[in-house]
C-alpha cells in the first residue's frame, strides 16, 4: 500500500492540473473565441440593458403576455438562481390541486376559449426555467392576448409563427415557441404601432 502512496499523490496533483485547470481553461478560452454569445449565457440585450437570457424563461401572469410553463422553483417562480421541478408523484393529491388551480386560472383568463387546455400549460417543467411552450399551448392563449392588446388574432398568430422553431432537422425534439422573445416582440409591436 505505502509503495503506491507517492505515485498516487503525484498522479492526483498532475491530473488535477490537467483536467481541473488546463482543460476547463482551454474550453473556456476556445468557447469565448468561437461562441462569445452562447458561452456567456445567451444574454438578451435591449438598448444595451440585459433583459434576460433567451434560454431562461421568465414568469408571466399578466393577460397581456403569453404565459409559459408553470414553474415549481422556490421561493418565486422561474428563480434562475435555484432551479427545480415539483417532484410531485402522479398520484399525489398536491399535483391534482395544482393542476386544478392552473386550469381555473386559465379558464378565468379567457372564458370564451372552449378548446381543451394543452397539458404543458398545467404541468410544471423539469427545470422550473423552461423558456419554451408548445405551439398548441401558445395558440390556445392567442385569442386572449389579441383581445387584451387590441390586436387582430391574425396578427398575433403571425407573430407566433415567426417565433416558432420546428424540430431540429425536421426530426429531433419538439416544435416550440420561445415565450420571452415572443413577449418582447409583442411589446415592440405595440411601440411600432404607436409610432405610426
Amino acid at each position: 500500500m505505502f509503495k503506491e502512496l507517492k505515485p498516487a499523490l503525484s498522479m492526483l496533483i498532475l491530473m488535477t492540473i490537467l483536467t481541473g485547470i488546463l482543460y476547463p481553461a482551454l474550453v473556456t478560452g476556445l468557447a469565448h473565441l468561437l461562441f462569445p454569445e452562447e458561452s456567456a449565457g445567451s444574454l438578451l440585450r435591449v438598448n444595451g440593458q440585459v433583459v434576460g437570457s433567451t434560454l431562461i424563461g421568465q414568469p408571466f401572469s399578466d393577460p397581456r403576455y403569453f404565459w409559459g410553463r408553470p414553474s415549481a422553483t422556490a421561493p418565486m417562480p422561474y428563480n434562475a438562481a435555484a432551479s427545480g421541478g415539483s417532484n410531485l408523484g402522479p398520484m399525489n393529491p398536491a399535483l391534482k390541486e395544482a393542476v386544478e388551480a392552473r386550469i381555473s386560472t386559465l379558464k378565468a383568463s379567457d372564458p370564451a376559449q372552449k378548446q381543451p387546455i394543452p397539458v404543458e400549460l398545467v404541468t410544471a417543467s423539469g427545470s422550473g426555467l423552461d423558456p419554451h411552450l408548445s405551439p398548441a399551448a401558445v395558440l390556445w392563449q392567442a385569442p386572449r392576448v389579441a383581445r387584451v392588446r387590441g390586436l387582430s388574432e391574425q396578427a398575433v398568430r403571425e407573430l407566433i409563427e415567426r417565433h416558432t422553431s420546428g424540430r431540429t432537422f425536421g426530426l429531433l425534439g419538439e416544435p416550440r415557441v420561445n415565450i420571452l422573445t415572443l413577449n418582447l416582440a409583442l411589446d415592440q409591436h405595440r411601440l411600432q404601432l404607436s409610432r405610426l
Binding site: L88, P116, P118
Partner: peptide, 26 residues
C-alpha cells in the same frame, strides 16, 4: 388524472401530450 380534468394530452405536431409534469417543452 389529466384526462379526467379535461386537459388535452394527445400527441401531435403542435403538442407533446402525455405526462408532461417535470418535463421540458423542447
Amino acid at each position: 388524472l389529466f384526462e379526467r380534468l379535461g386537459v388535452a394530452t394527445q400527441a401531435s405536431d403542435h403538442s407533446p401530450g402525455g405526462n408532461m409534469e417535470g418535463k421540458e417543452s423542447r
